[in-house]
Amino acid sequence: MARSRGGDRITPKKGGARGRATRDRQVYIYTEGEVTEPEYIDIIVRKGVWGRPDRKVQHHISNENAESKYRKPYRMVQEAVRTRIKAEREARSAGLRPYEVLPDGTEEGDWNWPQVWVVFDRDDHLSIPEAMSLADDEGIHVAYSHPCFELWRLLHYTNYTSTFGGVCGDANSRLRSRPGFAATYGPGVQRVSEQESKHLREDQVLSEDGHRYESARKYAKKINEYHSSRNPNAWDPYTNVWCLVEQGLLLGGY
């Protein structure tokens, strides 16, 4: 599958309005994690299947080289807004129209209108509600996990509905203890450190029949239904990474 990495540089695609129906959707992604989330995205885009063969995506990790201090949720949303403005300006010059899915399921505009996503966790951040509010106001898509992205990885192995008490280390520990997890790092490997586990392996998320992804999405949707609070700090556990997979990257599975 075609993929693109690095920077938030936005380069107009040749062909202008004449090629707007066939051009790929440009998706710009800001990730809080420097390793796990980019590796996950690379794996699923390379190995996944398009939801529709006639609709393709080029993804860009927009903050690939950013320092940790610039990877806070609110700061990333602010950066994402600037990227969205640039991307939409280029899209309009290419003849694209803003895209929207109406409540009845019908589509308006061009499906390949660019999108900007921010991927972040609850962790111990203090500005989650503010970051979510700004993203909603500015048309930035959010993939949010509580307590952290390891929950989404864990759901590829098993269902989990209990609270983590906001402790990401608990989610990571449960992930590392899953049968077969350590073996994905090499023959004979029986134990993996928390630091080592940040590097994601294909066999942790992929399966020949797509069962792991389908199960993870089903489990995630179910646990998300239990949250009635409007405060995302209280959504423990929660993850909507599958929205990035399907609505942003336009994958049908992996």
Rank of each mutant, 00 (worst) to 15 (best):
E37F: 09
E37S: 04
E37I: 09
P38M: 07
E39L: 15
Y40V: 00
D42W: 10
D42I: 10
D42Q: 15
I43C: 09
I43L: 15
I44D: 06
R46L: 14
V49P: 03
W50A: 15
W50E: 14
W50I: 11
G51T: 02
R52C: 08
P53W: 11
D54L: 05
R55F: 08
Q58I: 09
Q58E: 14
H59T: 09
I61A: 03
I61N: 01
I61T: 04
S62W: 06
N63Y: 07
E64F: 10
E64L: 14
E64V: 13
E64N: 08
N65Y: 06
N65S: 13
E67T: 11
S68E: 14
S68V: 05
S68M: 09
S68Y: 02
K69V: 15
Y70L: 15
K72C: 04
P73N: 02
P73M: 07
P73H: 02
Y74M: 11
R75N: 14
R75C: 12
R75E: 12
M76G: 12
M76P: 11
V77Q: 02
V77D: 00
V77E: 00
V77N: 04
E79D: 15
E79H: 09
V81K: 05
R82V: 09
T83R: 05
I85G: 01
I85M: 13
K86W: 10
A87E: 04
E88T: 01
E88R: 05
E90C: 12
E90D: 11
A91V: 03
R92M: 13
R92A: 08
A94T: 12
A94W: 02
A94Y: 06
G95Y: 06
G95A: 03
L96W: 11
P98N: 13
Y99W: 11
Y99A: 11
E100Y: 13
E100A: 14
V101T: 14
L102Y: 05
L102A: 08
L102W: 04
L102Q: 13
P103W: 14
D104I: 10
T106N: 10
T106A: 10
E107H: 07
G109E: 06
D110C: 07
D110L: 07
D110S: 07
W111C: 03
N112D: 05
W113G: 04
P114W: 04
P114L: 01
Q115Y: 01
W117N: 05
W117T: 01
W117R: 02
V118K: 03
V118E: 01
V118Q: 01
V119E: 02
V119F: 03
F120M: 01
F120T: 02
F120W: 01
F120H: 00
R122I: 02
R122P: 00
D123E: 04
D124T: 11
D124F: 08
L126K: 10
L126R: 10
L126E: 11
S127P: 00
S127N: 12
S127F: 10
S127A: 10
P129D: 08
E130N: 08
E130C: 06
E130M: 00
A131E: 07
A131C: 03
M132L: 12
S133R: 15
S133A: 15
S133P: 08
